[in-house]
Amino acid sequence: MEGGHRIDLVRHRVSPALDGLVAGVVGLSERAPGVVRRRQPAGTLLPLVFSFGNPLTIGPVADAAGAASYESFLAGLSSSPATTQFEDGQDCVQVYLTPIGARRILGVPGSQVAGRVLAVRDVGPRTDGYLTERLRGATTWTERFDLVERVLLQQLEREVGAPAWVGWMWSQIAQSGGRVRIRDLVDRTGWSHRYVTTVFAEEIGLTPKRAAGIVRFERAAADLGRFPLAEIAARRGYADQSHLARDVARYAGETPSELAAAQRPTAWTALGPLARTRR
Rank of each mutant, 00 (worst) to 15 (best):
S72P: 02
F73S: 05
A75I: 10
G76P: 00
G76H: 06
G76Y: 01
L77V: 00
S80Y: 07
S80M: 06
P81R: 08
A82H: 10
A82V: 04
Q85G: 14
F86Q: 06
G89E: 12
G89C: 09
C92N: 09
V93P: 06
V93K: 08
L97G: 04
T98G: 07
T98P: 08
T98E: 08
P99D: 02
P99R: 07
R103I: 07
R104T: 06
R104D: 10
R104A: 11
L106F: 05
G107I: 13
V108Y: 09
V108H: 03
V108A: 00
V108S: 08
S111W: 06
S111N: 00
S111M: 04
Q112C: 05
Q112E: 00
Q112K: 05
V113C: 09
V113H: 04
V113S: 05
A114G: 07
R116M: 04
V117K: 10
L118R: 02
A119P: 09
A119Y: 03
D122A: 10
V123P: 01
G124L: 03
T127G: 15
D128W: 12
D128L: 04
G129R: 00
G129N: 01
Y130P: 01
T132K: 15
E133A: 09
R136L: 14
R136A: 15
R136T: 11
T140I: 03
W141H: 02
W141N: 00
W141Q: 01
W141A: 00
E143S: 00
R144C: 05
R144E: 01
R144K: 10
V148F: 04
E149A: 11
V151Q: 09
L152G: 12
L153E: 12
Q154N: 14
R158H: 14
E159I: 05
E159L: 04
V160Q: 12
V160Y: 08
G161W: 05
A162M: 10
A162E: 13
P163I: 10
A164Q: 09
G167Q: 06
W168T: 12
W168K: 13
S171Q: 15
Q172V: 00
I173K: 01
G177C: 02
G178H: 05
R179I: 04
R181E: 14
I182D: 02
L185G: 12
D187Q: 11
D187V: 07
T189V: 15
G190T: 06
G190V: 01
G190H: 04
